[in-house]
């Protein structure tokens, strides 16, 4: 397999091979091949965008707070808005014990939000890659599980046997609870992935229509063109909402592990 150019195009998928396909935007392009002890660690367009998001988020906060005053200006107020937003989300859902996880939840929210939004402006949407969203969700569930066992030891297993449920229901409840616990990383990652893919495919398809219909008859292209700003606005909302959903679910799972409550 060639490390140069489009990776996906080399997999033999015919749809992807077409550069104008709505799926072409999800292709990973290697910018600099890199091998770390047999592991493919090539610097790709996705790596670049993730690094850019990290840089932008850091600059946003550091620059916003560079001339921090007691009475905030607009820029500082915006930074503080994000800070307070996530801080309140965490406090409302996990209580004071969840404070240690603030940097994690904040980083997750800003990373996902940054990736979602930057994807709407032509860059590759990293969060439309299932492996990325799954890795993030898996990390969240791992942290939650570790926190649960560290805080409660083997008592954490009692999480799978809901208190108050009748004994005869236990053979049914316990497997269900275990399945629901194991399904969390999947639902968490698929939700974000599917939302991002759907929106971007729709925008891509509309864009193709503008060109296609406009090529047939100029005025026809105006119909999908008019829809694009509306879909775009909707996608901005979805980008915000999905980052929020990911953050709030992380908080809820953390609360379950910290307080051993359903």
């Amino acid at each position: 397999m060639s490390r140069q150019g489009s990776r996906a195009a080399t997999t033999g998928d015919d749809i992807v091979a077409d550069a104008h396909s709505p799926l072409a935007q999800f292709e990973i392009k290697t910018l600099m091949p890199l091998d770390l002890g047999g592991v493919d660690a090539s610097f790709t367009n996705a790596s670049l965008i993730m690094a850019v998001v990290v840089g932008l988020v850091t600059i946003f906060i550091v620059a916003g707070m560079s001339k921090a005053t007691i009475i905030p200006g607009r820029f500082q107020g915006m930074v503080e808005f994000f800070y307070e937003f996530i801080a309140n989300l965490l406090k409302e859902n996990t209580g004071p014990k969840g404070k240690a996880f603030f940097p994690l939840v904040f980083s997750l929210f800003m990373f996902i939000l940054g990736c979602n939004l930057i994807g709407l402006f032509g860059a590759i949407t990293v969060t439309s890659h299932i492996i990325v969203t799954f890795a993030l969700a898996f990390m969240v569930i791992t942290v939650v599980t570790v926190v649960g066992f560290v805080k409660h030891g083997t008592h954490y297993f009692s999480y799978f046997a809901p208190a108050g449920a009748p004994m005869w229901l236990m053979p049914l409840m316990i497997p269900l609870e275990i399945i629901s616990y194991l399904i969390r990383p999947i639902s968490l990652s698929v939700r974000l992935f599917a939302n991002m893919v759907a929106g971007h495919v729709m925008l891509g398809v509309l864009g193709t229509f503008v060109v296609g219909l406009g090529g047939l008859f100029f005025a026809l292209g105006a119909i999908p063109l008019a829809a694009i700003p509306l879909i775009f606005a909707l996608e901005v909302l979805v980008a915000l909402l999905q980052a929020y959903v990911f953050a709030i679910l992380t908080c809820i799972y953390l609360n379950d592990a910290i307080h051993l409550a359903h």
């Binding site: 997999t11 998928d13 799926l23 493919d40 790596s47 990290v54 890659h129 890795a135």
Partner: peptide, 19 residues
């Protein structure tokens, strides 16, 4: 969909972890 090509998983994961 290009997202399901296992060849891209490794570089994506490495750089996701790093970033």
């Amino acid at each position: 969909m290009p997202q399901f090509d296992p060849a891209i998983f490794s570089p994506l994961l490495v750089w996701l972890i790093l970033t």
